[in-house]
Amino acid sequence: MKLHTFSDASTKGYGQCIYLRSVNAANKVHVTLISSKARVTPVKSITIPRLELQAAHGAVTLTQKVINELHLLNAQTYYYTDSEVVLGYITNTEARFHTFVANRVERICDHSKSEQWFHVPTDINPADHALRGLNPCRLQSSNWFTGPEFLWNEPIKLPRQPKHQISSTDKEIKAISLSTHHMQAYASIDERITRFSHLDQAV
């Protein structure tokens, strides 16, 4: 059995949904929604990349809870987001981030590996429904209960994956400042002494 967790965020809210995927002896695939969660965005203004990262962090937290409660310790786990920025944060090995991003990336990496994270287009990301809501008719015809179509393929054919790179102008990257100190060399002790009016200044 495998767990596939999707996350998404917008200015209205952020959420996650988890699907349990199994394949029987006849090679028949079954996918079902087993857990989901949604929250409204904080009153305090927060950027979309940060909300997307918060949603990804929630995806890992919710998945770990499901694994523990359902005793699925041997289940393989996969995570999906439509944010290439978040994937850039998670797969980053060089840049250093400000506290908000750094803390959440660290927690995500504590419970998952970068190889477990994938990009999924927004239009097939079922977590998007948790943010915008659906009336009963649209809910029934959506992929909320079944997950995206690619989960039903055997083997799974993932959407084409872009390269996850962080923009050099990303405001979450912490600037590294270096200070230099110039040391002047003197040819002899006599030359050094002549530059000071008091002997204790030359020492």
Rank of each mutant, 00 (worst) to 15 (best):
N125I: 05
H182Q: 13
T81N: 04
K163C: 11
C137L: 14
W117M: 03
G147M: 03
I67V: 12
V105Y: 02
G58H: 08
A202W: 09
A55K: 03
T93L: 15
L51Y: 03
Q140I: 05
Y186I: 10
F145I: 08
S112C: 05
S10C: 07
N24P: 02
A55F: 00
H98S: 07
K2I: 04
V203S: 11
L70E: 11
R104N: 07
L72Y: 05
T41A: 13
N92K: 07
Q76H: 15
D110H: 10
F150V: 02
C137P: 06
S167C: 07
T91I: 08
A185P: 09
E94T: 15
H30F: 05
K171E: 13
S177R: 15
I46M: 09
P121N: 13
Q64D: 08
I156D: 01
I34E: 05
D8N: 05
F145E: 09
T32S: 15
M183Y: 13
Q64N: 11
T61F: 07
H57L: 13
K171R: 14
V86H: 06
H129T: 06
D82Q: 05
D200A: 14
E154R: 07
L70T: 05
A56G: 09
L51E: 00
T194P: 06
E84F: 03
A95N: 14
R192Q: 12
S179N: 13
I67H: 00
V85H: 03
S114I: 06
R39I: 03
R192I: 15
T93Q: 15
A175H: 14
I46K: 04
W117P: 04
Q161V: 08
L178N: 11
A187E: 14
L3E: 00
F145H: 10
G133H: 08
I18H: 01
Q76M: 10
L20Y: 01
M1F: 07
E191G: 07
Q54D: 07
H129Y: 10
R192P: 02
V105C: 10
R96F: 09
W117T: 00
Y186N: 09
G133D: 05
V40Y: 05
